[in-house]
Write a protein that binds this DNA or RNA. Structure first.
Lengths: 222, 222
DNA sequence: AAACTGCATTTTGCATGCAAAATAGACTCA
DNA sequence: TGAGTCTATTTTGCATGCAAAATGCAGTTT
Protein backbone atom coordinates (compact mmCIF):
# COMPACT_ATOMS: atom_id res chain seq x y z
CA UNK A 1 0.00 0.00 0.00
CA UNK A 2 1.06 3.58 -0.68
CA UNK A 3 1.02 6.43 1.83
CA UNK A 4 -2.14 6.58 3.88
CA UNK A 5 -4.32 9.37 5.07
CA UNK A 6 -4.93 9.30 8.77
CA UNK A 7 -8.14 10.76 10.14
CA UNK A 8 -7.21 14.10 11.70
CA UNK A 9 -10.27 13.87 13.89
CA UNK A 10 -12.23 10.69 14.27
CA UNK A 11 -15.50 11.81 12.77
CA UNK A 12 -18.71 10.30 13.95
CA UNK A 13 -20.38 7.95 11.53
CA UNK A 14 -17.31 5.88 10.81
CA UNK A 15 -15.27 5.18 7.76
CA UNK A 16 -17.86 5.81 5.06
CA UNK A 17 -18.74 9.26 6.36
CA UNK A 18 -15.08 10.16 6.60
CA UNK A 19 -14.40 9.17 3.01
CA UNK A 20 -17.53 10.88 1.82
CA UNK A 21 -16.80 14.23 3.39
CA UNK A 22 -13.17 14.13 2.32
CA UNK A 23 -14.27 13.61 -1.27
CA UNK A 24 -16.91 16.32 -1.05
CA UNK A 25 -14.29 18.75 0.14
CA UNK A 26 -11.87 17.74 -2.59
CA UNK A 27 -14.54 18.25 -5.18
CA UNK A 28 -15.90 21.54 -3.91
CA UNK A 29 -12.44 23.03 -3.67
CA UNK A 30 -11.52 21.81 -7.10
CA UNK A 31 -8.83 19.39 -5.93
CA UNK A 32 -10.83 16.82 -7.85
CA UNK A 33 -11.77 18.26 -11.20
CA UNK A 34 -15.03 17.59 -13.07
CA UNK A 35 -14.68 14.52 -15.23
CA UNK A 36 -11.90 13.11 -13.10
CA UNK A 37 -12.07 9.36 -12.68
CA UNK A 38 -12.24 7.93 -9.17
CA UNK A 39 -10.48 4.66 -8.68
CA UNK A 40 -11.87 2.35 -6.01
CA UNK A 41 -8.58 0.67 -5.32
CA UNK A 42 -6.67 3.93 -5.27
CA UNK A 43 -9.09 5.45 -2.79
CA UNK A 44 -9.08 2.38 -0.61
CA UNK A 45 -5.31 2.75 -0.37
CA UNK A 46 -5.48 6.46 0.29
CA UNK A 47 -7.89 5.97 3.18
CA UNK A 48 -6.33 2.70 4.31
CA UNK A 49 -9.56 0.74 4.14
CA UNK A 50 -10.94 -1.97 1.93
CA UNK A 51 -12.96 -1.34 -1.20
CA UNK A 52 -16.27 -1.94 0.55
CA UNK A 53 -16.62 1.37 2.44
CA UNK A 54 -15.14 3.21 -0.53
CA UNK A 55 -17.78 1.75 -2.80
CA UNK A 56 -20.46 2.75 -0.35
CA UNK A 57 -19.21 6.33 -0.18
CA UNK A 58 -19.00 6.56 -3.97
CA UNK A 59 -22.47 5.13 -4.30
CA UNK A 60 -23.89 7.67 -1.88
CA UNK A 61 -22.23 10.53 -3.70
CA UNK A 62 -23.58 9.18 -6.97
CA UNK A 63 -27.07 9.09 -5.45
CA UNK A 64 -26.62 12.76 -4.63
CA UNK A 65 -25.57 13.59 -8.18
CA UNK A 66 -22.13 14.80 -7.13
CA UNK A 67 -20.55 11.90 -8.93
CA UNK A 68 -21.80 10.17 -12.06
CA UNK A 69 -21.23 6.73 -13.47
CA UNK A 70 -19.22 6.42 -16.59
CA UNK A 71 -20.79 4.88 -19.65
CA UNK A 72 -19.74 1.33 -18.94
CA UNK A 73 -17.59 1.38 -15.87
CA UNK A 74 -16.08 3.64 -13.28
CA UNK A 75 -17.37 6.68 -11.52
CA UNK A 76 -16.33 10.24 -12.16
CA UNK A 77 -16.82 13.73 -10.83
CA UNK A 78 -19.89 15.09 -12.55
CA UNK A 79 -19.13 17.42 -15.42
CA UNK A 80 -21.61 19.59 -17.22
CA UNK A 81 -22.03 21.02 -20.67
CA UNK A 82 -22.74 24.75 -20.82
CA UNK A 83 -26.40 23.94 -21.22
CA UNK A 84 -26.42 21.59 -18.25
CA UNK A 85 -24.54 24.15 -16.23
CA UNK A 86 -27.21 26.68 -17.05
CA UNK A 87 -29.87 24.27 -15.87
CA UNK A 88 -27.98 23.60 -12.68
CA UNK A 89 -27.65 27.30 -11.99
CA UNK A 90 -31.29 27.84 -12.75
CA UNK A 91 -32.15 25.47 -9.92
CA UNK A 92 -29.59 27.06 -7.61
CA UNK A 93 -31.03 30.43 -8.50
CA UNK A 94 -34.58 29.41 -7.64
CA UNK A 95 -33.53 27.82 -4.38
CA UNK A 96 -31.37 30.68 -3.23
CA UNK A 97 -33.99 33.28 -4.05
CA UNK A 98 -36.64 31.34 -2.14
CA UNK A 99 -34.16 30.99 0.69
CA UNK A 100 -33.53 34.69 0.84
CA UNK A 101 -37.23 35.47 0.86
CA UNK A 102 -37.99 33.01 3.63
CA UNK A 103 -34.89 33.82 5.65
CA UNK A 104 -35.62 37.54 5.63
CA UNK A 105 -39.09 36.82 7.02
CA UNK A 106 -37.78 34.66 9.84
CA UNK A 107 -34.45 36.24 10.62
CA UNK A 108 -33.59 36.02 14.29
CA UNK A 109 -30.89 37.76 16.25
CA UNK A 110 -28.99 34.49 16.34
CA UNK A 111 -29.20 33.98 12.59
CA UNK A 112 -27.99 37.51 11.97
CA UNK A 113 -25.04 37.00 14.27
CA UNK A 114 -24.18 33.72 12.62
CA UNK A 115 -24.27 35.19 9.13
CA UNK A 116 -22.12 38.12 10.14
CA UNK A 117 -19.65 35.82 11.82
CA UNK A 118 -19.29 33.63 8.75
CA UNK A 119 -18.86 36.70 6.61
CA UNK A 120 -16.02 37.84 8.87
CA UNK A 121 -14.33 34.50 8.35
CA UNK A 122 -14.73 34.89 4.59
CA UNK A 123 -13.18 38.30 4.78
CA UNK A 124 -10.22 37.03 6.76
CA UNK A 125 -9.60 34.22 4.29
CA UNK A 126 -9.91 36.66 1.40
CA UNK A 127 -7.45 39.06 2.96
CA UNK A 128 -5.06 36.21 3.56
CA UNK A 129 -5.48 35.26 -0.09
CA UNK A 130 -6.14 31.67 0.93
CA UNK A 131 -8.31 30.20 -1.83
CA UNK A 132 -9.11 26.91 -0.18
CA UNK A 133 -10.00 28.54 3.13
CA UNK A 134 -12.14 31.07 1.31
CA UNK A 135 -14.06 28.41 -0.58
CA UNK A 136 -14.84 26.58 2.64
CA UNK A 137 -15.76 29.79 4.46
CA UNK A 138 -17.96 30.80 1.56
CA UNK A 139 -19.86 27.52 1.86
CA UNK A 140 -20.33 28.17 5.55
CA UNK A 141 -21.57 31.68 4.87
CA UNK A 142 -24.23 30.51 2.48
CA UNK A 143 -25.19 27.67 4.78
CA UNK A 144 -25.75 30.20 7.52
CA UNK A 145 -28.25 31.93 5.25
CA UNK A 146 -29.95 28.62 4.55
CA UNK A 147 -30.17 27.91 8.26
CA UNK A 148 -31.77 31.28 8.80
CA UNK A 149 -34.86 29.95 7.04
CA UNK A 150 -35.35 27.68 10.04
CA UNK A 151 -36.10 24.87 7.60
CA UNK A 152 -33.59 22.00 7.76
CA UNK A 153 -34.73 20.55 4.42
CA UNK A 154 -33.99 23.79 2.66
CA UNK A 155 -30.54 23.64 4.20
CA UNK A 156 -30.13 20.13 2.88
CA UNK A 157 -31.22 20.79 -0.66
CA UNK A 158 -29.50 24.14 -1.03
CA UNK A 159 -26.25 22.70 0.29
CA UNK A 160 -26.54 19.83 -2.11
CA UNK A 161 -26.79 22.07 -5.13
CA UNK A 162 -24.05 24.29 -3.81
CA UNK A 163 -21.78 21.27 -3.61
CA UNK A 164 -22.66 20.24 -7.11
CA UNK A 165 -21.81 23.62 -8.54
CA UNK A 166 -18.76 23.94 -6.33
CA UNK A 167 -16.13 22.92 -8.86
CA UNK A 168 -17.38 25.52 -11.30
CA UNK A 169 -17.67 28.33 -8.86
CA UNK A 170 -14.19 27.64 -7.59
CA UNK A 171 -12.77 28.56 -10.98
CA UNK A 172 -14.03 32.09 -10.60
CA UNK A 173 -11.29 32.85 -8.17
CA UNK A 174 -7.87 33.36 -9.65
CA UNK A 175 -6.47 36.31 -7.72
CA UNK A 176 -6.74 37.69 -4.21
CA UNK A 177 -8.77 40.53 -5.68
CA UNK A 178 -11.37 38.04 -6.87
CA UNK A 179 -11.74 36.80 -3.31
CA UNK A 180 -12.00 40.30 -1.90
CA UNK A 181 -14.55 41.21 -4.54
CA UNK A 182 -16.67 38.23 -3.63
CA UNK A 183 -16.47 39.00 0.07
CA UNK A 184 -17.40 42.58 -0.76
CA UNK A 185 -20.54 41.50 -2.61
CA UNK A 186 -21.50 39.43 0.41
CA UNK A 187 -21.70 42.67 2.35
CA UNK A 188 -24.24 44.08 -0.03
CA UNK A 189 -26.18 40.84 0.02
CA UNK A 190 -26.29 40.90 3.80
CA UNK A 191 -27.77 44.39 3.80
CA UNK A 192 -30.57 43.18 1.57
CA UNK A 193 -31.14 40.02 3.59
CA UNK A 194 -31.43 41.99 6.80
CA UNK A 195 -34.00 44.32 5.31
CA UNK A 196 -37.48 43.76 6.63
CA UNK A 197 -38.92 43.63 3.16
CA UNK A 198 -38.74 40.08 1.82
CA UNK A 199 -38.92 41.39 -1.73
CA UNK A 200 -35.79 43.44 -1.20
CA UNK A 201 -34.10 40.34 0.17
CA UNK A 202 -35.10 38.03 -2.66
CA UNK A 203 -34.29 40.63 -5.30
CA UNK A 204 -30.93 41.15 -3.65
CA UNK A 205 -30.25 37.44 -3.87
CA UNK A 206 -31.54 37.30 -7.43
CA UNK A 207 -29.05 39.98 -8.36
CA UNK A 208 -26.24 38.27 -6.46
CA UNK A 209 -26.92 34.95 -8.16
CA UNK A 210 -27.26 36.38 -11.64
CA UNK A 211 -23.93 38.10 -11.17
CA UNK A 212 -22.35 34.99 -9.82
CA UNK A 213 -23.59 32.96 -12.76
CA UNK A 214 -22.20 35.40 -15.27
CA UNK A 215 -18.81 35.24 -13.63
CA UNK A 216 -18.92 31.46 -13.58
CA UNK A 217 -19.85 31.35 -17.24
CA UNK A 218 -16.95 33.57 -18.09
CA UNK A 219 -14.55 31.43 -16.08
CA UNK A 220 -15.78 28.12 -17.50
CA UNK A 221 -16.39 28.84 -21.15
CA UNK A 222 -13.16 30.43 -22.25
CA UNK B 1 -34.04 -18.70 3.01
CA UNK B 2 -37.69 -17.65 2.83
CA UNK B 3 -39.67 -16.99 -0.34
CA UNK B 4 -37.85 -14.83 -2.83
CA UNK B 5 -38.82 -12.01 -5.09
CA UNK B 6 -37.86 -12.62 -8.67
CA UNK B 7 -37.15 -9.63 -10.89
CA UNK B 8 -40.18 -9.29 -13.18
CA UNK B 9 -38.05 -7.46 -15.67
CA UNK B 10 -34.29 -7.35 -15.41
CA UNK B 11 -33.83 -3.66 -14.82
CA UNK B 12 -30.72 -1.95 -16.06
CA UNK B 13 -28.25 -0.96 -13.42
CA UNK B 14 -28.20 -4.28 -11.65
CA UNK B 15 -29.15 -5.52 -8.25
CA UNK B 16 -28.73 -2.34 -6.25
CA UNK B 17 -30.95 -0.29 -8.54
CA UNK B 18 -33.59 -2.98 -8.46
CA UNK B 19 -33.67 -3.07 -4.67
CA UNK B 20 -33.62 0.68 -4.47
CA UNK B 21 -36.57 1.25 -6.75
CA UNK B 22 -38.56 -1.55 -5.15
CA UNK B 23 -38.09 0.07 -1.77
CA UNK B 24 -38.93 3.51 -3.10
CA UNK B 25 -42.16 2.18 -4.48
CA UNK B 26 -43.01 0.40 -1.26
CA UNK B 27 -42.43 3.58 0.65
CA UNK B 28 -44.28 5.92 -1.65
CA UNK B 29 -47.31 3.68 -1.75
CA UNK B 30 -47.29 3.26 1.99
CA UNK B 31 -46.50 -0.46 1.93
CA UNK B 32 -43.59 0.50 4.13
CA UNK B 33 -44.80 2.88 6.82
CA UNK B 34 -42.80 5.78 8.26
CA UNK B 35 -40.74 4.60 11.20
CA UNK B 36 -40.69 1.03 9.99
CA UNK B 37 -37.42 -0.74 10.56
CA UNK B 38 -35.60 -2.23 7.58
CA UNK B 39 -33.71 -5.41 8.24
CA UNK B 40 -30.66 -6.07 6.11
CA UNK B 41 -30.88 -9.80 6.39
CA UNK B 42 -34.62 -9.87 5.76
CA UNK B 43 -34.23 -7.75 2.64
CA UNK B 44 -31.34 -9.83 1.37
CA UNK B 45 -33.59 -12.85 1.61
CA UNK B 46 -36.50 -11.11 -0.04
CA UNK B 47 -34.40 -10.09 -3.02
CA UNK B 48 -32.33 -13.25 -2.98
CA UNK B 49 -29.02 -11.46 -2.79
CA UNK B 50 -26.35 -11.01 -0.18
CA UNK B 51 -26.28 -8.20 2.32
CA UNK B 52 -23.76 -6.19 0.32
CA UNK B 53 -26.07 -4.81 -2.39
CA UNK B 54 -28.84 -4.38 0.18
CA UNK B 55 -26.55 -2.28 2.33
CA UNK B 56 -25.60 -0.21 -0.69
CA UNK B 57 -29.23 0.43 -1.59
CA UNK B 58 -30.10 1.37 1.97
CA UNK B 59 -27.12 3.66 2.14
CA UNK B 60 -28.13 5.43 -1.05
CA UNK B 61 -31.67 5.91 0.18
CA UNK B 62 -30.32 7.25 3.44
CA UNK B 63 -28.18 9.71 1.49
CA UNK B 64 -31.36 10.89 -0.22
CA UNK B 65 -33.16 11.36 3.08
CA UNK B 66 -35.81 8.78 2.28
CA UNK B 67 -34.48 6.56 5.02
CA UNK B 68 -32.86 7.62 8.27
CA UNK B 69 -30.49 5.88 10.60
CA UNK B 70 -31.74 4.86 13.98
CA UNK B 71 -30.05 6.28 17.04
CA UNK B 72 -27.59 3.47 17.51
CA UNK B 73 -28.30 0.89 14.89
CA UNK B 74 -30.56 0.00 12.04
CA UNK B 75 -32.18 2.08 9.37
CA UNK B 76 -35.84 3.11 9.18
CA UNK B 77 -38.28 4.83 6.90
CA UNK B 78 -38.07 8.53 7.70
CA UNK B 79 -40.89 9.78 9.89
CA UNK B 80 -41.69 13.37 10.58
CA UNK B 81 -43.21 15.34 13.39
CA UNK B 82 -46.01 17.74 12.39
CA UNK B 83 -43.47 20.54 12.43
CA UNK B 84 -41.03 18.62 10.25
CA UNK B 85 -43.85 17.71 7.92
CA UNK B 86 -44.69 21.38 7.59
CA UNK B 87 -41.09 22.13 6.72
CA UNK B 88 -41.03 19.36 4.18
CA UNK B 89 -44.18 20.65 2.55
CA UNK B 90 -42.84 24.17 2.57
CA UNK B 91 -39.96 22.98 0.40
CA UNK B 92 -42.30 20.96 -1.84
CA UNK B 93 -44.46 24.03 -2.16
CA UNK B 94 -41.61 26.26 -3.22
CA UNK B 95 -40.33 23.74 -5.71
CA UNK B 96 -43.68 22.98 -7.26
CA UNK B 97 -44.59 26.63 -7.62
CA UNK B 98 -41.28 27.39 -9.29
CA UNK B 99 -41.86 24.37 -11.50
CA UNK B 100 -45.25 25.57 -12.58
CA UNK B 101 -43.96 29.02 -13.40
CA UNK B 102 -41.05 27.72 -15.45
CA UNK B 103 -43.06 24.96 -17.11
CA UNK B 104 -45.78 27.34 -18.24
CA UNK B 105 -43.14 29.50 -19.90
CA UNK B 106 -41.60 26.61 -21.77
CA UNK B 107 -44.53 24.35 -22.42
CA UNK B 108 -44.23 22.51 -25.70
CA UNK B 109 -46.82 20.56 -27.61
CA UNK B 110 -45.10 17.37 -26.52
CA UNK B 111 -45.14 18.37 -22.85
CA UNK B 112 -48.81 19.21 -23.04
CA UNK B 113 -49.59 15.87 -24.61
CA UNK B 114 -47.56 14.04 -22.00
CA UNK B 115 -49.27 15.78 -19.11
CA UNK B 116 -52.70 15.10 -20.54
CA UNK B 117 -51.83 11.47 -21.12
CA UNK B 118 -50.67 10.99 -17.54
CA UNK B 119 -53.79 12.68 -16.30
CA UNK B 120 -55.88 10.22 -18.31
CA UNK B 121 -54.08 7.37 -16.62
CA UNK B 122 -54.78 8.94 -13.23
CA UNK B 123 -58.42 9.22 -14.10
CA UNK B 124 -58.62 5.59 -15.17
CA UNK B 125 -56.98 4.43 -11.96
CA UNK B 126 -59.32 6.64 -9.94
CA UNK B 127 -62.37 5.30 -11.70
CA UNK B 128 -61.14 1.78 -11.11
CA UNK B 129 -60.71 2.69 -7.45
CA UNK B 130 -57.19 1.26 -7.53
CA UNK B 131 -55.25 3.12 -4.85
CA UNK B 132 -51.83 1.76 -5.61
CA UNK B 133 -52.20 2.38 -9.34
CA UNK B 134 -53.46 5.87 -8.66
CA UNK B 135 -50.52 6.72 -6.43
CA UNK B 136 -48.09 5.61 -9.09
CA UNK B 137 -50.00 7.39 -11.85
CA UNK B 138 -50.13 10.53 -9.73
CA UNK B 139 -46.33 10.46 -9.40
CA UNK B 140 -46.05 10.15 -13.16
CA UNK B 141 -48.43 13.04 -13.68
CA UNK B 142 -46.42 15.36 -11.50
CA UNK B 143 -43.20 14.16 -13.05
CA UNK B 144 -44.58 15.08 -16.44
CA UNK B 145 -45.04 18.62 -15.15
CA UNK B 146 -41.50 18.66 -13.84
CA UNK B 147 -40.22 17.47 -17.19
CA UNK B 148 -42.10 20.26 -18.89
CA UNK B 149 -39.63 22.69 -17.35
CA UNK B 150 -37.01 21.20 -19.64
CA UNK B 151 -34.65 21.16 -16.68
CA UNK B 152 -33.55 17.67 -15.64
CA UNK B 153 -32.25 18.84 -12.27
CA UNK B 154 -35.63 20.26 -11.36
CA UNK B 155 -37.09 16.89 -12.23
CA UNK B 156 -34.57 15.24 -9.95
CA UNK B 157 -35.10 17.44 -6.96
CA UNK B 158 -38.86 17.68 -7.26
CA UNK B 159 -39.17 13.92 -7.60
CA UNK B 160 -36.97 13.46 -4.58
CA UNK B 161 -39.21 15.56 -2.37
CA UNK B 162 -42.29 13.98 -3.81
CA UNK B 163 -40.93 10.59 -2.81
CA UNK B 164 -40.15 11.79 0.67
CA UNK B 165 -43.63 13.08 1.23
CA UNK B 166 -45.18 10.07 -0.49
CA UNK B 167 -46.11 8.09 2.61
CA UNK B 168 -48.03 11.05 4.01
CA UNK B 169 -49.82 11.98 0.86
CA UNK B 170 -50.91 8.38 0.39
CA UNK B 171 -52.95 8.60 3.58
CA UNK B 172 -55.16 11.25 2.04
CA UNK B 173 -56.88 8.64 -0.02
CA UNK B 174 -59.35 6.45 1.76
CA UNK B 175 -62.25 6.15 -0.66
CA UNK B 176 -62.73 6.04 -4.40
CA UNK B 177 -64.25 9.51 -4.13
CA UNK B 178 -60.97 10.82 -2.73
CA UNK B 179 -59.19 9.53 -5.79
CA UNK B 180 -61.75 11.03 -8.16
CA UNK B 181 -61.57 14.32 -6.30
CA UNK B 182 -57.81 14.42 -6.65
CA UNK B 183 -57.99 13.60 -10.35
CA UNK B 184 -60.61 16.34 -10.71
CA UNK B 185 -58.35 18.93 -9.13
CA UNK B 186 -55.63 17.90 -11.58
CA UNK B 187 -57.90 19.07 -14.36
CA UNK B 188 -58.13 22.54 -12.89
CA UNK B 189 -54.40 22.59 -12.33
CA UNK B 190 -53.81 21.67 -15.96
CA UNK B 191 -55.93 24.56 -17.15
CA UNK B 192 -53.79 26.94 -15.16
CA UNK B 193 -50.56 25.35 -16.27
CA UNK B 194 -51.53 25.64 -19.92
CA UNK B 195 -52.38 29.29 -19.55
CA UNK B 196 -49.85 31.56 -21.19
CA UNK B 197 -49.54 33.67 -18.10
CA UNK B 198 -46.88 32.20 -15.83
CA UNK B 199 -48.41 33.98 -12.86
CA UNK B 200 -51.68 32.19 -13.43
CA UNK B 201 -49.78 28.92 -13.59
CA UNK B 202 -47.76 29.45 -10.44
CA UNK B 203 -50.76 30.75 -8.52
CA UNK B 204 -52.72 27.72 -9.69
CA UNK B 205 -50.02 25.45 -8.36
CA UNK B 206 -49.78 27.45 -5.16
CA UNK B 207 -53.46 26.90 -4.63
CA UNK B 208 -53.23 23.23 -5.50
CA UNK B 209 -50.37 22.65 -3.08
CA UNK B 210 -51.94 24.60 -0.24
CA UNK B 211 -55.04 22.50 -0.63
CA UNK B 212 -53.08 19.32 -0.80
CA UNK B 213 -51.17 20.21 2.34
CA UNK B 214 -54.34 20.90 4.26
CA UNK B 215 -55.74 17.53 3.30
CA UNK B 216 -52.53 15.80 4.26
CA UNK B 217 -52.51 17.55 7.60
CA UNK B 218 -56.03 16.43 8.29
CA UNK B 219 -55.20 12.85 7.34
CA UNK B 220 -52.02 12.70 9.41
CA UNK B 221 -52.85 14.56 12.55
CA UNK B 222 -56.04 12.91 13.67
C1' DA C 1 -39.56 -4.65 42.86
C1' DA C 2 -36.01 -1.94 40.84
C1' DA C 3 -31.41 -1.79 39.51
C1' DC C 4 -27.23 -3.83 38.29
C1' DT C 5 -24.19 -7.33 36.16
C1' DG C 6 -22.63 -10.80 33.08
C1' DC C 7 -23.47 -13.74 29.24
C1' DA C 8 -25.57 -15.10 24.80
C1' DT C 9 -27.43 -13.46 20.59
C1' DT C 10 -28.21 -10.38 17.00
C1' DT C 11 -26.69 -6.86 14.10
C1' DT C 12 -23.45 -4.07 12.06
C1' DG C 13 -19.13 -2.54 9.66
C1' DC C 14 -15.61 -3.76 7.13
C1' DA C 15 -12.23 -7.14 4.84
C1' DT C 16 -11.44 -10.51 1.63
C1' DG C 17 -12.51 -13.65 -2.16
C1' DC C 18 -14.13 -14.80 -6.58
C1' DA C 19 -16.33 -14.82 -10.99
C1' DA C 20 -17.94 -12.05 -14.80
C1' DA C 21 -17.66 -7.86 -17.50
C1' DA C 22 -14.85 -4.56 -19.68
C1' DT C 23 -10.64 -2.88 -21.67
C1' DA C 24 -6.07 -2.90 -23.56
C1' DG C 25 -2.61 -5.08 -26.05
C1' DA C 26 -0.64 -8.44 -29.05
C1' DC C 27 -1.23 -10.93 -32.98
C1' DT C 28 -3.19 -12.29 -37.52
C1' DC C 29 -4.69 -11.68 -42.03
C1' DA C 30 -5.94 -9.07 -45.77
C1' DT D 1 -1.02 -0.26 -42.85
C1' DG D 2 -5.41 -1.08 -41.07
C1' DA D 3 -9.17 -3.76 -39.54
C1' DG D 4 -10.42 -7.53 -36.96
C1' DT D 5 -10.14 -10.98 -33.21
C1' DC D 6 -8.18 -13.30 -29.58
C1' DT D 7 -6.08 -13.35 -25.08
C1' DA D 8 -4.24 -11.19 -20.70
C1' DT D 9 -5.18 -7.83 -17.29
C1' DT D 10 -7.85 -4.73 -14.88
C1' DT D 11 -12.00 -3.48 -12.83
C1' DT D 12 -16.38 -4.26 -11.16
C1' DG D 13 -20.31 -6.49 -8.64
C1' DC D 14 -21.61 -9.37 -5.39
C1' DA D 15 -20.92 -13.19 -1.78
C1' DT D 16 -19.03 -14.63 2.30
C1' DG D 17 -16.45 -14.28 6.57
C1' DC D 18 -15.27 -12.31 10.86
C1' DA D 19 -14.68 -9.32 14.72
C1' DA D 20 -16.69 -5.63 17.37
C1' DA D 21 -20.66 -3.15 18.91
C1' DA D 22 -25.22 -3.23 20.49
C1' DT D 23 -29.09 -5.42 22.48
C1' DG D 24 -31.79 -8.60 25.15
C1' DC D 25 -32.22 -11.57 28.98
C1' DA D 26 -31.57 -14.13 33.02
C1' DG D 27 -29.80 -14.19 37.42
C1' DT D 28 -28.28 -11.72 41.37
C1' DT D 29 -28.27 -8.11 44.74
C1' DT D 30 -30.24 -4.59 47.58
Amino acid sequence: MAERERPAVVERGGTVARIESALVEDISTGALAPGEHLDEVGLSERFAVSRTPVREALSRLTAQGILVQGKKRGVRVAEYSPEQLAHLFEVMHEIEVACARIASQRMTLLSRAEIIEKQDICLMAAEAGDLRAYLIANERFHEAIYRATGNPYIVEIASEFRRRTGPFRSRRFATKEDLLGSAQSHKILIDHLFSEDSKVASDGMRHHMANSYLTVLRANLV
